[in-house]
Nucleic acid binder design. Structure first.
Lengths: 337, 337
DNA sequence: CAAGTTCATGTCAACGCTGTCTTGTTATCG
DNA sequence: CGATAACAAGACAGCGTTGACATGAACTTG
């Protein structure tokens, strides 16, 4: 039982008694071949377990593959997976394969995996930028590989971008808490160094300022350490000298961390609104600033597919809306002082 | 601003004043080239934005790519993406790319995406089998593409398999409920047609039988309809003539559906143990039969990488353990009758 | 110092496929 | 019935890369 050789068009051609070009036609423009010949070829192909080699086909045809590359920080986060899922849906609808690669949230990792994907000649590159600078991708668009940034714009690179309405979503949520009478409203996030978070913090501060509340930094915890436990960060804030009566968490991780930190606090628990919806938020009664990561992925993929046909169109920046979903935790009033 | 042409080894060679083979060597066995030449070549490559075409390389070298293909039902389920995450970790550690494809949980989808992956010459194929028959993959192993089944064994195909200890996990959980005094214990799952579920049901029935309880079908809901809402299925069982006092749910979806169905039942809610752990299970106090989908993926990927080197070794069947995690919901005693 | 060894680089063909062009065969029509 | 179109199939080259083999220069070594 040795390893066998894979059959090629030549092998099939020989067995079917035709030329390799005819075999090629059968797997390409089948209607250019006489029906009887098609049958003979297919029969021979099946007998030899022939599978066309799409690498060779792509190489010959020139241009890129019909594969879409998606680069993200890490798997294991529902937000990223939602995006991946949306990309996959749209890609498979259109017959494109999806290659996923993770950067481990490091700039080096990003450049490494992006290089690998480009070496594989992906037809389009979707990425959640991590590095401080994507200028190494400059030129790819002109070489026929569209680049699309997701969740955060690319830096030093002209590229399409699909992002969320971060600022207005958090502004709105913060305003709701303020309207209920809260004044000491906190904002917690990690990582904090990405644009998306900067926008959310901005929305928070603007809402606070609109109510004449300054010096918000005492209620902010903008951490940037992937190893820091969300639960600790929140617990730390809640046990500070001047703890907030309401809290906004910057992503699903943080929200779940907050829930852990708040377990057993009963009536003393602060009001809570989380950015990102999650599976059991309804069961837990957690109010959220919701958005649709799957749609984010779908839109990005659709844009990518469009760009594969026309790499040089004007780049777009698409902003998807957020939606507040009240489930109780964000409607809790401040304790009567 | 027209689309430019991608540079090839020839272009770089011309600019650097060497032969194309030397350029090839610089990007392959760099130490066979004089340092000064390496520098000249790298400089020329950078100027031309040269990126080696790994399609051509793979074609020339023969054999498969270093890409691992993963075929699963859908990307929106934490169980699946846990597996994907594990595969990705192990693959990227080893320098393999990961292509993900979803079948939409249909047999046709499975064969279609598998064909596409094989046409792309993936180095190994990992799949969560959906179709009733994987014999169409027969021979791939001998053609150098190892196939590894995850979560469920492949049917009519000799292939490695990595599965969970489904039977014993559910047997153990059911026994715990029985030991606490429950007698009317229910089991709910959807989809029910896969081997993994059959094993879980078997574990449930065996535990019941060990306590001398027969006629369990009145407490079973083995649904096989992807569109059926989990919440409804559970609600239906709970409102039946002879409702169970304790419930085992066959996967995370079902568990969350049960939580929804049980909202507001207070003291009347049945005891609950879910198969699969999930993000907020600790916060919700849900007892689970836990296992590690990430590890499942890692093991599968490791096996795949091993098999790429040696496609014809004896196939293995690896069974990963489950672990009961008590968090309260599964420790609730039956109501005093 | 001739013969052998090492090292840096080059020449050429081929991986599997398909676009372009050519050839041969059969149907169509004034 | 000879000219012409329509169709089926083949010959050949080349996509970008690298393995096998060849070449020539510098360096050992007895």
């Amino acid at each position: 039982m040795a390893v066998q050789q894979r059959a090629t068009v030549e092998d099939v051609a020989r067995l079917a008694g035709v030329s390799s070009k005819t075999v090629s036609r059968v797997f390409g423009n089948r209607d250019l071949v006489a029906p009887a010949t098609v049958e003979r070829v297919l029969d021979a192909a099946k007998r030899l377990r022939f599978r066309p080699n799409s690498l060779a086909r792509t190489l010959r045809r020139g241009g890129g593959t019909d594969t879409i590359g998606f680069v993200m920080g890490e798997l294991g986060n529902p937000f990223y997976y939602g995006i991946a899922s949306g990309i996959e849906q749209e890609a498979s609808r259109n017959g494109n394969a999806l290659v996923v690669a993770t950067t481990g949230d490091t700039p080096d990792g990003e450049e490494r995996v992006v290089d690998a994907l480009l070496a594989q000649r992906v037809g389009a590159l979707l990425l959640v930028p991590v590095a401080a600078d994507q200028s190494y991708l400059e030129g790819e668009r002109h070489l026929g590989t569209p680049v699309i940034a997701i969740d955060r714009p690319a830096r030093n690179l002209v590229a399409d971008a699909i992002v969320l309405a971060n600022r207005s979503g958090v502004f709105d949520a913060t305003s709701r808490l303020l309207a209920r009478g809260h004044r000491r409203v906190g904002y917690v996030c990690n990582p904090a160094a990405v644009k998306a978070q900067a926008e959310r913090v901005q929305g928070y501060r603007e809402a606070m300022a609109a109510y004449g509340i300054g010096g918000t930094s005492r209620w902010e915890r903008l951490v940037d350490d992937p190893r820091a436990a969300p639960e600790r960060i929140v617990a730390d804030l809640l046990s500070s000298a001047d703890p907030p009566t309401a809290l906004i968490t910057g992503n699903n991780r943080m929200t779940i961390g907050a829930l852990r930190a708040m377990r057993g606090l009963g009536e003393d628990a602060p009001a809570l609104i989380g950015f990102d919806d999650f599976d059991t938020a309804d069961v837990l009664g957690v109010s959220v600033i919701s958005h649709d990561p799957v749609e984010l992925g779908r839109r990005a993929a659709r844009l990518a597919i469009e760009r594969i046909g026309d790499p040089l169109g004007f780049t777009q920046r698409i902003e998807l809306p957020t939606r507040f979903i009240g489930r109780g935790s964000g409607e809790r009033p401040p304790p009567k002082a």
